[in-house]
């Protein structure tokens, strides 16, 4: 299955969830903001959501410190 990740084509197995994708990318869901098909999501609340063919996903990642 193909989808767009941060503007680049990305391949993954059907049924991949946001949670499993973030785990694959070694990102912690509570530290990222997602934009899925132009809708901003709190990643932590959408771990179970499955990605679909053609989805456009942007990931904004935060590191600690301030």
């Amino acid at each position: 299955m193909n989808f767009q990740l941060n503007g680049q084509s990305h391949q993954t197995v059907a049924g991949t969830t946001i949670g499993s994708l973030l785990a694959e990318l070694q990102l912690q869901p509570e530290r990222v903001v997602l934009e899925l098909n132009q809708v901003i999501l709190n990643a932590n609340e959408y771990r179970e959501q499955q990605l679909k063919e053609g989805d456009k996903l942007e990931i904004i990642q935060f590191v600690g410190g301030g």
Binding site: Q28, E30, R31, V32, V33, L34, I40, L41, N42, A43, N44, I60, F62, V63, G64, G65, G66
Partner: peptide
Amino acid sequence: AFDAPDQKAMLTAAHLQQAA
């Protein structure tokens, strides 16, 4: 201007959703 990364993500998501 938070320190903790989960707070940064929470505020950013909430702001972009509520006050774009």
